[in-house]
Design a protein around this nucleic acid. Structure first.
Length: 725
RNA sequence: GCCGAAGUAGCUCAGUCGGUUAGAGCAACGGAAUCAUAAUCCGUGUGUCGGGGGUUCAAAUCCCUCCUUCGGCACCA
């Protein structure tokens, strides 16, 4: 039996996950995992937090806490969010686990033994006070290129030049403020280049299965050629390099984080009481199929770097499928942390805690998966999808069937009357016949129609063939990672079920032909069960609810060893509910989402309170404030700066003296309307160069979140050069 | 301004290795029905496939050009 290993990109434990992450990797991976488990396939779905790296130490310092505090905060928050979203990991681990350290170190030593690492010494800035080597973002100094004193690390903010850290003039450590010294430091470089050809062969062998965007990014990297890459860093926060002379050195995240998939699997195996079982999943075998879900920012790590690591280690499985998604936008705009544009999972869960609401989110995201290009999440769409699709089509069919059963059949699955007693057998025969027909050719149904009309009327025949063809089509979509289409096809089966209910009109036959009515509802009850299972990968909570209403097996694809081998997906085709079985009183599966709810969420978008980011220690004393000379200035001439979108070059007069100021206001003010205006400028700033022109001051204007801008002007006329305070 | 992506029905999107009357869901409109959360089912699209030009027997699909939008960069002292 095949073993299907699934990983979803490890989220970085330096922030909360948002719906973009969910759409990129976790929801599609979860749908796929649940689908496979419903099929009875052996499936292992692995993920965890990525918890090392410079960014985390920077956050820790900024907040005055330890890195451990940071990763605990985000690991537990994200882990809980995933659980509540119903992401059915077999294990959600973390890279700070000792087992991960062991695993990563083993790999490192193995590379060393195999001669894949080269040791090399180079100079780097060292802070003698803080006693640490300085990563690029911890040093600043004078740019060797343009002389700006705001240059940092390996790049100048002013002129954009890239250079080696040690070329920086007058370097200053951002940790201690002291001047760092240059010290030799040793690192291990991984010879990625030795795998150039092997990766090319591997990638091309997968060309038929990987999406265009995945292949193209991979090829473009390979085209540039793989080079040696440092596999270690001078850092305190990471997996230590396991060598005697390697104090203060950690394995670089490129070569460490992805191993989290493997260490997580090892921990899972230990928890199962079968510590060696991880090999069943990771060792190369014809039965092992590995699929890696991720966002487009992560492609080459999973098609080049990780495969190299796996190849280097011998007999590991390589990713067979890499379904990479594009990005999810929010209300038409890109996610932005600083602008608070986007929806965090935890915020959603706080406002929409109901299981059915979580299902509605999963459904909305699944229906809009950025499979081929960036797509959009909007609250209005969330409402529309919930109200007009989930509630109106799927929910409604479940409800009308349940209501009918309770109104006319005492809440039981109808017992088939004498004349339809053979229905279950006829159902099996019909399903068998339809199975032989290729998909996509509706006319092929016709040849069986007359044969089965002895047992089924045309409406019944139609709905059962919609079920059979739909189930196959959906399975095919899942297997080829067209999840959005899978969902659409699933909803189409629910539509066919509603159509059947309408066409069969049991509310009429209940009076005119009770036998026929019983038969109709018998079919409907079976369809409710089928639909609940078919929707389970997307709406597990509501599916379980519907199955519980039918007092039947409510499994919806969670990890469960006992589930392997039981093909519930296939069972969707069979009438498994027993005649006369009692059902629970109907419950509404999906409530409506009101306009007011949508408006409330919309109004929350983008309302980052700037005040929040001003912390105590940033408060200025009055003396500091006085250092800035604000003066009124009269604009005597203005013109656009050529080739610049935003800059206006202004000639201003301050108390009789002229100077030139560049201002980024061209999108909002024309040179003509600027001329003659009295504005407020910061008059004692160091001159700066913008687009090659000198700016001797800064003009004051108000900015809003959207980037709109309004000049600060005077309420009454004042001479130029007047002090503003 | 540079780089990248994209512009297909009112909306969200599919189709784009050239080939019959360009598709789906939602919305809208008309009808049927009333078991059901006014939920369902049926029917209805003269869409310049962003504009223009070219290649071709044939272009939404290839080439050129222009326009617009969205990212990234530059820039916003």
């Amino acid at each position: 039996m095949k073993r299907r290993l699934i990983t979803a990109a490890l989220p970085y434990a330096n922030g909360f996950i948002h719906l973009g992450h969910c759409a990129g990797a976790y929801i599609p991976a979860d749908m796929y995992a649940r689908f496979l488990r419903l099929n009875g396939e052996q499936t292992l779905f692995v993920c965890g937090s990525d918890e090392y790296g410079v960014a985390i130490t920077i956050s820790a310092e900024a907040e005055g806490v330890t890195p451990r505090d940071i990763i605990d905060k985000y690991h537990f928050a994200n882990s809980e969010a995933f659980a509540r979203l119903g992401i059915s990991f077999d294990i959600y681990s973390r890279t700070s686990e000792p087992e991960h350290t062991r695993a990563a170190q083993e790999f490192f030593l193995d590379w060393l033994r195999k001669g894949l690492l080269v040791e090399r010494e180079e100079g780097q800035f060292y802070d003698e006070v803080a006693k640490m080597f300085l990563p690029d973002r911890y040093v600043e100094g004078v740019c060797p290129n343009c002389g700006s004193d705001k240059a940092r690390g390996d790049q100048c903010e002013n002129c954009g030049a890239y250079y080696n850290q040690i070329e920086l003039k007058n370097p200053r450590s951002k940790v201690s403020g002291q001047t760092p010294v240059i010290r030799k430091t040793k690192h291990w470089y991984f010879k990625l280049n030795e795998f150039q050809e092997a990766i090319e062969v591997y990638a091309e062998s997968r060309a038929a299965y990987w999406k265009d965007n995945v292949m193209q990014q991979t090829r473009s990297w390979l085209k540039q050629g793989l080079a040696e890459r440092a596999a270690s860093r001078d850092l305190s926060w990471g997996v230590p390099v396991p060598l005697p002379d390697a104090d203060g050195k950690v394995i670089y995240v490129w070569f460490e984080a992805v191993l989290g998939y493997i260490s997580a699997t090892k921990i899972w195996a230990q928890n199962q009481g079968t510590p060696e079982a991880w090999r069943d999943w990771w060792k190369k075998s014809d039965d092992n199929i590995y699929t890696a879900f991720l966002g487009k920012d992560n492609i080459v790590f999973h098609t080049i770097i990780f495969p190299i690591i796996l190849m280097a280690a011998d007999d590991y499985v390589l990713p067979a499928y890499v379904p990479a998604n594009e990005f999810l936008n929010f209300e038409g705009q890109k996610f932005s942390k600083s602008r608070n544009w986007g929806v965090y999972a935890r915020d959603f869960l706080q406002d929409f805690p109901e299981p059915a609401q979580i299902d509605a989110l999963r459904y909305t995201i699944a229906a809009n998966l950025p499979e081929t290009r960036d797509s959009d999440f909007s609250w209005k769409d969330f409402q529309v999808k919930n109200n007009n699709e989930l509630a109106a089509v799927f929910g409604n069919f479940v409800n009308r069937t349940a209501q009918f059963l309770h109104k006319y059949f005492g809440g039981a699955v109808p017992v088939l009357p004498e004349r339809f007693a053979k229905l279950p057998e006829a159902w099996e025969l019909l399903t068998d016949d339809l199975k032989r027909e290729p998909l996509g050719r509706e006319e092929s149904r016709a040849k069986y129609e007359s044969k089965h009309l002895r047992y089924f009327n045309p409406d019944e025949f139609a709905v059962l063939s919609a079920l059979e063809f739909g189930t196959r089509r959906i399975a095919e979509c899942y297997h080829s990672f067209r999840l959005r289409e899978a969902l659409l096809e699933t909803m189409n089966v629910a539509r066919a079920a509603n159509k059947f209910f309408n066409d069969a009109a049991p509310w009429k036959t209940v009076k005119t032909d009770p036998d026929q009515c019983a038969k109709t509802l018998y079919v409907c009850a079976q369809l409710v069960r089928s639909l609940a299972v078919m929707f389970a990968p997307v709406t597990p909570n509501s599916s379980a609810e519907a199955l519980r209403m039918l007092n039947t097996d409510s499994y919806t694809g969670e990890p469960d060893a006992k589930a392997a081998g039981v093909n519930r997906w296939n069972d969707v085709l069979h009438p498994l509910l027993a005649q006369g079985a009692m059902t629970a009183p109907p419950k509404i599966l999906f409530g409506k989402i009101e306009d007011a709810t949508v408006e409330k969420q919309l109004s929350k978008m983008g309302t980052a309170t700037a005040a929040e980011t001003v912390t105590e220690e940033e408060l200025l004393g009055i003396d500091d404030f006085r250092k800035i000379q604000l003066r009124t200035a009269k604009v005597i001439a203005a013109e656009r700066v050529p080739k610049s979108e935003k800059l206006l070059k202004l000639r201003v007069e301050i108390a009789g003296k002229e100077r030139q100021i560049l201002a980024g206001i061209a999108k909002f003010y024309t040179p003509e309307e600027m001329t003659g205006k009295t504005v407020v400028v910061a008059a004692n700033l160091k001159p700066a160069k913008l687009m090659g022109l000198e700016s001797q001051g800064m003009l004051l204007a108000a900015n809003d979140d959207e980037g709109n801008l309004a000049l600060v002007t005077l309420e009454r006329e004042m001479p130029s050069g007047a002090e503003v305070r």
